[in-house]
Design a protein around this nucleic acid. Structure first.
Lengths: 252, 252
DNA sequence: TAGTCATAGTAAACGGCGTTCACTTCTGAG
DNA sequence: CTCAGAAGTGAACGCCGTTTACTATGACTA
């Protein structure tokens, strides 16, 4: 298994060249610009040859989405590892890395976090249990979140109200991560949807009518969110020691 | 100007028939399923005839997006008007109406609130100042929001910190609505992005890995959000007197 | 009423697309 | 050396958006 044959090497390079071409088209023209004929043309091939590597266009787009999930997850994990040991700094760096990647790669972000595209939807549904890419994302954010909120007075309704309102509707989340207190699970989902809403609205252009520099709004919102989690009175910034600007004006 | 000629009447009906067909295709197959040839086929026409009504496919999709904006805005305004005079009840009803429409019409929601689609992006950029559809949406939510938060102790950083961090980056929003205190503008944007993130994640299927009944999470989150705005200690539900379920399990 | 003219529609065509099928070339294992 | 299978080609089918030339017809005017 150690020595790949010559054919296997050629196949691997061709496969990655196909996905590189697909991503180039995605970046320049959006999802609908990805076409087998254009990819093959850029490679000096003909379109039917791609069918030796993917059963159809949708499967190619799905595989591309999977690669993008892994890429973003790696970036976020790297930001976490470079942020020191304090959970609040780790979470801050991870959220900033997420936004930074999304703003720098809007087409890629749209592919994996926007409208379900046929290929991506199939890819998302196919691995719905343990290896779901969204679930792995959640797990990455969940660990420092748990560390941060351990023993803290979380915002939101008290546990009994949560049990009454949410009941067992969070089982898909709690079943994956052992015994997760319901107030922690709720606080995590609340924070995750807040982060998503902020980043997605910026990337999709739905914030341009109201905000001049979305980066500033993001930093303010991030500070408020992490401050609320720690029970702070919504005060100062969360120790922006890492790479991101504590109160800057990120450029798009 | 009162009596439209026969030709004008025919033209109007044909135009709405075209948009009806486009919407039908949008609902059944997503944005990429909208095709001039399919619309014309359903109408018993040929595709080039549609060019008498729209310069190209993108313009048709943009017009459809504009209609959907108006439809959703009308529904939200109706929910507001049916919710009585208390701002908190109005906001509750409006948020519920927004989610209800989004869940009931995922394709339409995706078209106007998801990834920028060529035609929709052009439509969105074209009227970027006063008549921006997102801006009119914001205005609809802004009025009861202002009434609710008047004199209340808003969550989030104090005004001086906001001035330092956000500075004049909120001018696109404040310039449209007179003198808007910066803490109100920030609280409004924070609430709006939270609502968007919650609804968009549910509609796009990005919440299925964690939550069983997104409706329950929505109700909990909505109660917490409105409770925070009123300065309440994150307690009881916000007087669900209207139509929506106070703690129900909305079906998808 | 007869004439004119813009309007609404058609048919044909062009290029691009995903996908299939028959066919050729070439690699690598026995 | 042989040969099965992998990789790639070319042609074709049906779909698509869009353009062009052309026709019928409703509406206004002399």
């Amino acid at each position: 298994m150690s020595a790949p044959t010559r054919r296997e090497r050629l196949r691997a390079t061709t496969l990655s060249e196909i996905k590189d071409g697909a991503r180039r088209l995605l970046v320049t023209g959006g999802v609908e610009a990805i076409s087998l004929r254009a990819i093959a043309r850029d490679m000096g091939m003909t379109a039917p040859a791609i069918y030796r590597y993917f059963p159809n266009l949708e499967a190619l787009v799905g595989a591309l989405a999977g690669d993008l999930y892994d890429e973003l997850r790696g970036i976020i994990e790297a930001a976490r590892d470079a942020a020191g040991g304090k959970p609040v700094d780790q979470l801050t760096a991870m959220c900033r890395a997420m936004r930074h990647w999304a703003v720098a790669h809007p087409a890629e972000f749209s592919l994996i976090f926007g409208n379900p595209v046929p290929g991506v939807a199939a890819f998302t549904d196919a691995c719905a249990d343990a290896e779901h890419p969204g679930a792995r994302f959640g797990a990455v954010f969940l660990a420092p979140f748990l560390a941060l909120t351990r023993g803290a007075a979380l915002p939101g309704p008290p546990a009994d109200v949560l049990h009454q309102q949410l009941g067992c509707h969070l089982t898909p989340l709690t079943a994956k991560h052992g015994e997760l207190p319901i107030e922690v699970a709720y606080a995590f989902l609340s924070a995750w949807t807040r982060l998503y809403g902020l980043v997605a609205m910026e990337v999709f252009g739905h914030l341009a009518w109201a905000v001049d520099s979305p980066g500033a709004l993001f930093e303010t919102e991030l500070a408020a969110l992490l401050g609320q989690l720690r029970g702070a009175p919504d005060g100062g910034p969360p120790a922006g020691n890492g790479d991101g600007p504590p109160a800057g004006s990120a450029r798009h």
